[in-house]
Write a protein that binds this DNA or RNA. Sequence first.
RNA 1: GAGCCGUUAGUUCAGCGGGAGAAUACUUGCUUGACAGGCAAGGGGUCACUGGUUCAAAUCCAGUACGGCUCACCA
Length: 881
Amino acid sequence: MDEEQKTSLPSKYNPKAVEEDRYQFWLKGKYFEATGDPEKEPFTIVIPPPNVTGRLHLGHAWDMTMQDTISRMKRMQGYDVLWLPGMDHAGIATQAKVEAKLKEQGTNRYDLGREKFMATAWEWKKEYADFIRSQWESLGLGLDYSRERFTLDDGLSDAVKEVFVTLYEKGLIYRGEYIINWDPKTRTALSDIEVIYEEVEGKFYHMRYPIKDSDETIEIATTRPETMLGDTAVAVHPQDERYTHLIGKTVILPIVGREIEIVADEYVDMELGSGAVKITPAHDPNDFEVGNRHNLERILIMHEDGSMNENAGKYDGLNRFDCRSQIVKDLQDQGVLFNIENRTHQVGHSERSGVVVEPYLSTQWFVHMQPLADAAMGLQSKEEKVNFVPERFEGTYLHWMENIRDWVISRQLWWGHRIPAWYHKETKEIYVGKEAPADSENWEQDEDVLDTWFSSALWPFSTMGWPDENAADFKRYFPTDVLVTGYDIIFFWVARMIFQSKQFTDQRPFKDVLIHGLIRDAEGRKMSKSLGNGVDPMDVVEKYGADSLRYFLLTGSTPGQDLRFHWEKVESTWNFANKVWNASRFSLMNMEGFTYEDIDLSGEKSLADKWILTRLNETIDHVTKNTNKYEFGEAGRHLYNFIWDELCDWYIEMAKLPLYGEDEEKKNTTRSVLAYVLDQTMRMLHPFMPFITEEIWQQLPHVGESITTAAWPEVRNVFHDEVASKEMKRLVSIIKSVRNIRAEVDTPMSKQVKLLIQAEDNAIVRELEKNRDYLERFCNPSELVISSQLDIPEQAMSAVITGAEIYLPLEGLIDFEKEINRLERELAKWNKEVERLQKKLANEGFVKKAPQAVVDEEKQKEQDYLEKQAKVKTRLEELKG
RNA sequence: GAGCCGUUAGUUCAGCGGGAGAAUACUUGCUUGACAGGCAAGGGGUCACUGGUUCAAAUCCAGUACGGCUCACCA
């Protein structure tokens, strides 16, 4: 009871109490703000700006936790860390949400008008930005809010204009009429990667077009029969003997009655279908190319909303799907359509609205990609390349860049960066510039905005003051050090940042790019709204705390792999936090009045002290190396093992000896070691679990305001002690053997029995005598005899360890048959091991070719096992005899 | 059609050339002066399959099967 009052820590870890107000404390101390300290080396991360469309999901939490872990560690390692926060206006996605909201209110953007619509969208943005910031807070992210950016900020908009104008002047941006992917729901153009191809059960319609002045027909097939309304040719392969006589002839297009030509074009594949293809230049990208080669008319048959237009004749006004059914019926009636085949095929859908995308002839702005891609790819052969982690994603990136096509950047939306192009009302001349032309009344600005990714592509430098190349942040913090993102946006974002950065700053945007996978549910399915299997990170934080969620996310997979979400795993992480909590609680209970000044590591250390300090060193080494490689799983596992198995299960138990004893000097040394080890451990754990470690660190003897700015632990070789490690190993084997035997004969540890240890030589006797206290505490014997010449009792259980044998005389308790059985099993084990090793060592190839160290190690093991084998054998003979 | 990833304990995943690991679940004991969300002991795997390289393969190479992803094509 007394101890309970000595510390303010409750016995059960309560994340809510620990996390509350902590973030405000950090913000108040400005620990997350980049200092610009010239003494320090800068280290920069820019956040992948989340869309202001809604709440953050687990994927965001994962992504941002990794960045937070990296930046917290770097800050502790003495870097001037800038982790720059911000958000993305997410043009099409946000506009869709705002429009849905308007629809609920019974209005729409056209009724509202551009200006009022924009005001509504800005309100939306504010609401969600606040929400996102509160989520960042809940996760404990160490962001520098003094530098927060939004993609529609003035500075970023200026960068967008600068880039657009420059690329236009260099001829790398052009405007033209091409086939693009059209989303009839949101009524905007989409880039190729915004189209998701899905397999659908469709139909394949076979038709015969009549040839003018002939009885012949030509067979064609299509999955989109309604597009025949826009056909302006039929194409065949020039070498196709079936059709050579028809080339140049005229086909009468059914229903429409239009006369169209049969052209020869090598695009046609003779092997496929009938070998003849209908050509619809305004509604198919390949047909568009064919049309260009043959100067064909382009007939657009749809409105922007996907309904048929006046060129569709009697179908004018029908939506595209109704038109299809109607036209199929009509063509069947006319005998033109003679066969309908079922066929599954890939159909493009809009990534945002989900509707079927229509290839559509339209005037849009494009980026001419080849020169930009070439320059970006050139970077990868240089020293200053972008390092993909894991490396294989570099291949994914390069493959895409090699096959790059021009990028449609105009979007028929309002929410975004308006294209800085003006058209002269009379002359139709185009003006492109950062500002409107002087006689503005004669000019009209392009109604469209730019693809969201056009501005995100500039994020690593537009957020730092560029295009002002002398901006302080740009000079100091660019290029950034690492970008953390998922493999699903390598094309959308990573690739585009690289080529824009190369083009405009002549540098890579980031040195490393750490790619992670997707979060999946427990069954391995993608988390999605339609499945309803999504998990809200805030629910996890609510239940188990941010630290548990973070540790789970960090250690749950390896770089590049997907991660399955399991509540049980988060729960087991909470157990770990609870363990950390209680180990600290125990330590603090035994450190009342002990201050930072009292810490003294120069005194005479116990075996436990020497051993734990050695293990601490090794842990620091592992954790630092693995975290630097972004191997958070490995780093976390080392910390977990160190804390739970070594610090708690062994060191703290051993430390109870002096702590509960009377010797003040020993007590102080133990307190010092405990305080030191805990302090160092909390520091290492801090980037993983920032809240709990800050709380504990604040209560431990410490100097400094916050663990966030405490120095990262360093390996201290003075504490490295091989001898202690070896001694500890022997001690642990003895204790485990005793526990083992007791379990075997069902003797609880509370029941005292005699323990005899037969040491191999006097050195080992001395060693064990020195550690007698530990043996007594852990084995609880009624009497402990350590000797090199022991009278071995007849009725005893025994175990063999390196350098010693132990005996527990358990008269009356021993089931000799069982014991003989056990020893025989053990002997069999040693026999097997010895045999394996001897076979290996007898292998000439092994001894000759394997590294000497490996051979030596195996020889050593052979000796050890031989010894054990012999002892077990002797013991067995004694028992049998 | 091309490429990438995965296949290891009941489950989720590490390990990636030298004796099969963790967490969780399971079994058995334990009112152990931090923690029963704990402690201790234990069972559980032809490391998908077939070949090859090597003194040595879960680990490297080739192929096969199954699962997943990406890109391209599909008139």
